[in-house]
Design a protein around this nucleic acid. Structure first.
Lengths: 191, 191
DNA sequence: TTTATTGTTGATTGACGAGTCAATAAACTT
DNA sequence: AAGTTTATTGACTCGTCAATCAACAATAAA
């Protein structure tokens, strides 16, 4: 069986399985065994590629952040003007990829992880900073001195919409979430 | 030692210790032993009063919701007019009692619990319904047909502000959170 | 073809934790 | 005084799980 060049493949499979498993179980109480099984390998191999369970979690977090970042960057590249850029950030934030059940569940649990694991905290801080700076770039031309306050409110609102998605039943509705956020933006800019 | 009428005292101590311990540890991975120790008794006694760890968690959740509900009701009793009532709900939501570190940490973890434990989900749903109806009562006279949408946005914003508090360092700042929420309200009502 | 490198797993270790049990003791009841 | 209920705990069971290890297999390098 042993073919060479397995490392990246197996690592990717493990990361994906971690997100799936956390999202499915809705908790960080996932065993390495479960993850390894879903990724189609033994527990020992999972430990071989990621030294510890914590490393696996962090890699999964990084992966989610990377996906999110890529989506935002892609959307921004197509957007022209501040309004379009703000809209792009919101749409990307609630895109089917990022706003799917598993991802949202995993996201919530990473938030919990950040309370204990400094590295996880740092990763979430990076996300917050990036989001803020993206929003700010679009807001400054439109809201002037109030841009900072609006960005903070909008950031919290986005996180809140994610949080609430966790409890909802039925399929996720990114469109509705975007509408709420856009409404916030609309009234803030109308004042 | 055995005095009678210990049950309510011990139960209260356990519930309090549960919230403290979850908040302190920042996770639901708290042992019954830790909780019992903080509450000044043996593991066996904790199991005697609450059949299981899950029951303890649910009791702790109910307690937090009760505290919150009482605070909101108290604030509403003193408020006159829709604006004052809305303000009262927000101030109560971010009062030092509810917005303290431990409580916020516990709150986040209860959210996680709600993903797996139906009873926990039900409790959070009650909270959401109550919050929404309180906001709606104040908003209807002021926002008319838009009241529903504004309440949903404000609800999500409040949850988001709680969520973000988890990552912040330094003492919690309820005043700032209220300011963000009031700003949302202000612009929504100005449109 | 020996030797190193990479891939892979079953079995094991070592620790920990939820929940149970048996036993003890004080207080109320009859 | 005997019996019942409530309070309390140390010791134990039983299961789980992260992490390690020893061994085996295949490919690449020497």
């Amino acid at each position: 069986m042993p073919k060479l060049g397995m490392e990246p493949i197996r690592k990717a499979a493990l990361v994906k399985a971690t997100i799936t498993e956390i999202g499915r179980q809705g908790s960080l109480d996932v065993t390495v065994g479960q993850i390894a099984k879903r990724a189609g390998m033994s527990t020992a191999l999972a430990h071989h590629y990621f030294g510890s369970k914590e490393d696996l979690f962090l890699a999964a977090m990084r992966h989610i952040l990377t996906l999110y970042g890529a989506e935002v960057r892609g959307a921004l590249a197509l957007a022209d003007g501040p309004e379009a850029r703000l809209h792009a950030v919101l749409v990307a934030s609630f895109s089917p990829m990022n706003f799917r059940r598993e991802a949202v569940g995993a996201w919530l649990n990473f938030w919990v992880l950040a309370q204990t694991v400094p590295q996880a905290r740092r990763l979430l801080a990076i996300y917050q900073r990036r989001l803020r700076s993206n929003l700010l770039a679009g807001l400054r031309p439109l809201a002037g001195a109030r841009a900072g306050a609006v960005a903070d409110g909008l950031g919290a609102l986005i996180d809140g919409l994610y949080l609430r998605e966790v409890l909802k039943s039925g399929p996720p509705d990114g469109r509705a979430a975007v509408a709420v956020a856009m409404d916030y933006l609309r009234v803030q800019l109308a004042v």
